[in-house]
Write a protein that binds this DNA or RNA. Structure first.
Length: 458
RNA sequence: GCCGCUUUCGUCUAGUGGCCCAGGACACAGCGUUCUCAACGCUGUAACACCGGUUCGACUCCGGUAAGCGGCACCA
């Protein structure tokens, strides 16, 4: 997204470029894909996986990836959703390669800014007799008795009889194109070579094919991705936690985890990449970088995968574990005001102790809270607590090593059960589950520890 | 209703006629480790929708049935 040039805004120039590409086999083979979100809401896992696949497909084939906002439904527009769509792309690290100049950077293409174009083509079609006016709208005439088919990159041959399709609106009476016209015109003008979109578009594809033919254009290749479904196998909806990617971001999920999770929903790496020997554990963790090398459209499944949060959680945990301590601390600070207020030395001690327990970044507060305030478990009997108190008082240097030495010695000398003694410490000082107790004590000051013991005695 | 898509463990999937009485992962259970909770290690439970063909041989090929889902808007 550095140098700004927009081959599409200027249609004429785009045409000549197109011609040149046809003559030049290198260029004509160049892959170009797009994503076409409509700003009517915030993308969820399903939409976003389509974005990911497009992006990977472009990168794998050293092609271009463009973003086009399909905002032709003026009623359903939702304030701020464009920004959120872009924020998701940014969060996941999926950058696009061209677009109109917006403050020296590439912006997405916006259909509402290209309204005239669609009207022009709709008029052309009307004049040529392929379309007609109907109550202020323009409909495409569907010729009966024809069969329309294409070789889907994922599903293989699919065909429809034109008899099941009625004349359909291509230009609405408000002057905006319907999806069908908009998508065909733009995909052609933007020289999109491969359309990767959700399965729900399969039945619309014949309409698009008709438009390509009426307009005298060559259609792109189509790949219809099975859509992610909820536990009840129907479309992902809010009810099933079809939360937006931004929600997951706020809950402390890492982009790496989200990407890894999404890519394995309906796609799998070639066996030789996943596993070297039979019976050996298969590789499941992939970075975006690796994916750009091994992704391929023919390994996309034909079935709709069910969204499963457990697996996402597992990925997140894994990626959290892989983060370096400074990186992890940095991210935790974005989620915990308490972490910001804690001094670095103590904070890294705490993070080291609780990191294996965290599923998401917001879990930090959950597991670290015991270092700031006591939990709610009841303390053990008074005698035991007093004994623990004496033991703690006898520690001179308050650090993990000294604590360990002194207390282990105390256990020996007083002939105590180690487990029982440690549990007493845990319950009277933290009143909750803790990481290994000596290390946990070392996080607190001696003063704070004794204060807590004192409180346990009351 | 019409049209289309789909069908391997609960879930994500591997598998392209014999390597599969089906492999891996998540989840679950048990065991180990252990001061609690985790983490970690090991083990285990669990699937080719159904019926016919083709074939010496079918998860893999063909046909049908069933079920699920999607589309059939001046929404995308």
């Amino acid at each position: 997204m550095k140098k700004v040039e927009d081959p599409v805004a200027d249609t004429e120039r785009s045409r000549s470029e197109h011609n040149r590409r046809i003559e030049d086999p290198e260029h004509s083979r160049k892959v170009r894909v797009r994503i076409a979100p409509s700003p009517t809401g915030v993308p969820h896992i399903g939409n976003t996986r389509t974005v990911l696949f497009n992006w990977l497909f472009a990168r794998k084939n050293k092609g271009k990836f463009v973003v086009r906002i399909e905002d032709t439904d003026r009623q359903r527009l939702q304030e701020g959703s464009l920004e959120k769509i872009l924020e998701i792309l940014d969060f996941l690290g999926l950058s696009w390669d061209e677009g109109p100049n917006v403050g020296g950077d590439f912006g997405p293409y916006i259909q509402s800014e290209r309204k005239d174009l669609y009207q022009k083509y709709a008029k052309d079609l009307t004049q040529k007799g392929f379309a007609y006016e109907d109550e202020g709208a323009i409909r495409l005439k569907v010729e009966k008795g024809k069969s329309w088919s294409w070789n889907d990159l994922i599903h293989g041959e699919i065909s429809f009889k034109s008899d099941v399709i009625e004349d359909f609106v291509i230009l609405k009476s408000d002057g905006f194109p319907t999806y069908h016209l908009g998508v065909v015109v733009d995909d052609h003008l933007m020289e999109i070579t491969d359309v990767l979109r959700g399965d729900e578009w399969i039945s619309s594809t014949p309409k698009h094919l008709m438009l390509y033919e009426a307009l005298g254009w060559q259609p792109p290749k189509f790949a219809h991705l099975p859509v992610i479904v909820g536990p009840d196998k129907s479309k992902l909806s809010k009810r099933h936690g079809a939360k937006s990617i931004l929600d997951y971001k706020e809950e402390g999920y890492l982009p790496q985890a989200l990407i890894n999770f999404m890519v394995l929903l309906g796609w799998s790496p070639p066996p030789e990449v996943a596993r070297r020997n039979i019976g050996e554990k298969e590789k499941e963790l992939f970075t975006l970088e690796e994916l750009t090398k091994i992704f391929s459209i023919d390994r996309v499944n034909t079935t709709s995968p069910v969204f499963n949060i457990e697996k996402l959680n597992w990925f997140n945990k894994k990626y959290l574990q892989m983060l370096s301590l400074p990186d992890l601390i940095g991210k935790i600070k974005d989620f915990s005001s308490r972490a910001i207020r804690t001094d670095d030395r103590q904070l890294s001690q705490i993070v080291n102790l609780v990191r294996d327990r965290m599923t998401t970044l917001t879990d930090f507060d959950k597991y670290a809270s015991i270092f700031f305030e006591k939990g709610s478990e009841k303390p053990p009997g008074k005698e035991k607590v007093e004994n623990a108190q004496k033991a703690l008082q006898s520690i001179t240097n308050w650090n993990e090593k000294a604590i360990t030495q002194t207390l282990d010695k105390w256990i020996q000398e007083n002939n105590l059960s180690a487990g029982d003694f440690k549990n007493t410490l845990r319950l009277s000082v933290f009143a909750d589950n803790t990481p290994p107790i000596y290390q946990s004590l070392a996080v607190l000051s001696k003063e704070e520890t004794l204060k807590r013991i004192e409180a346990a005695l009351k």
